[in-house]
Design a protein around this nucleic acid. Structure first.
Lengths: 226, 226
DNA sequence: TGCGCCGTCAATGTATCCAATCTAACGGCA
DNA sequence: TGCCGTTAGATTGGATACATTGACGGCGCA
């Protein structure tokens, strides 16, 4: 229940709906709920000590974020993606993340780049711990965008990361077993180099290739989406 | 209340929340509600013959779409954009719409291109009627994407169009008064030509320039965002 | 006269209760 | 024995009623 830096996280004020939505989101991202798993309103209500009304609003919120699928008069399930849907989210990322990176680049200072270097190094040594790798990878990329003014682009990209989180976990599990994250590590270093050189064009290119390669490798593992 | 081809339109099942959300969305897009205007839950409930519960869920939905701004314990307002926020949405469009156009291009047949040509011609003669122009422009561009499999990209782009609708209307009002939509018309013809030639790269380029020029012209009219 | 406190009111947030709908198990029938 | 209609249960959707929060205006005081 801890650890994932929630993108649309505990920002919103004290209303119960938001608290519940935050808790559910964290549970889904951490794998406490699996894709396809049913979410019963009363269960959530009981666990959060509230009535079903705020739970319903929380579910609506998560549906809008794409994390939950609601069917009228039937129920709520943790959203699952087909391979094609997941690939589409990655294509959106390929187009939008370079935009955000470009906006962030001028504001990235030495401290931010240092933190990113630490994370990149950590990922290379963390080959075994999938969840730690996921957290570091997420923080690495989000850190590269952190100097951009938060706005719609950040929101959209955050939703893409959240929606694909489970499949990234499964893929990383596979890849780490075969010790085949070398390309990832290399691209992270390349990206850092572009940022240090303040070269936005190169950074965009590297980032596009990084996301695209991941997408193509994901497409090679349709069994993840079974 | 009619006319706007709602992007996230009356798709969803019979639940009252969705009906109310559809009605509110249409009202906002048509200008029945102005940006910054307050939306009272009881008003909407009374008008739609339902209680406040489904109204609240509808408002949550529209908040997620970016059309409504909710403040806890305070109320709901029709979302308003600053010039910077609007420009950001246009930058997202610059990156994503070419992607969608490329996906749609192979499936565009003669009928679709013919319809687009009709709409382009209509826009050129419709110089006076702002709302008719807006409808035609929207249908023109959405038609160019219609052959792509509906997915997240379509959704995101639709939301961008919806959120900027009001400001496009105001801008068009200004531009049509000065008869300065010539560049728009020209770009529409160029785009159609690329599509007829089945040239995806050129089409992407023209579309990017089309959206970017609009963004820059919008930036020249900060008074719209007062 | 201007600032700040307090009371009233309106609008939202939440809980409880009832109705409508879907699911699944059961039994009848071919 | 397999299929289908029926019925009972569970679960969600919605309405009403109450609690809570925030806003506005009046009053007192400096």
């Amino acid at each position: 229940m801890t650890g994932v830096p929630a993108v649309s996280g505990p920002v919103a004020g004290g209303t119960a709906s938001h608290r519940i939505a935050d808790a559910l989101r964290a549970a889904i991202l951490d794998g406490g709920y699996q894709p396809g798993e049913r979410i019963r309103q009363e269960d959530v209500a009981a666990r959060s000590g509230a009535s079903r009304i705020p739970v319903r609003e929380a579910l609506r919120l998560l549906e809008a974020e794409g994390l939950v699928t609601l069917v009228a008069n039937s129920g709520a399930w943790v959203a699952r993606l087909t391979l094609a849907e997941c690939a589409e989210l990655y294509q959106i990322r390929e187009r939008l993340e370079p935009l955000l990176l470009r906006a962030s680049l001028p504001g990235l200072d030495g401290a931010a780049l240092g933190r990113m270097a630490d994370l990149a190094a950590a990922m290379e040594s963390l080959a075994g711990d999938v969840d730690a790798f996921l957290r570091a990878d997420r923080e690495f990329h989000l850190a590269s965008y952190a100097a951009a003014a938060p706005g719609e682009t950040t929101q959209v990209i955050g939703r893409m990361w959240n929606r694909t989180q489970h499949y990234r976990r499964e893929f990383t599990r596979l890849a780490s077993r075969r010790a085949s994250l070398d390309a990832t590590h290399l691209e992270h270093r390349l990206l850092l180099d572009c940022l240090r050189r303040d070269d936005a064009d190169d950074a965009e290119r590297v980032l596009v290739m990084h996301i695209r390669r991941t997408r193509l490798e994901l497409s090679g593992h349709p069994e993840i989406f079974g």
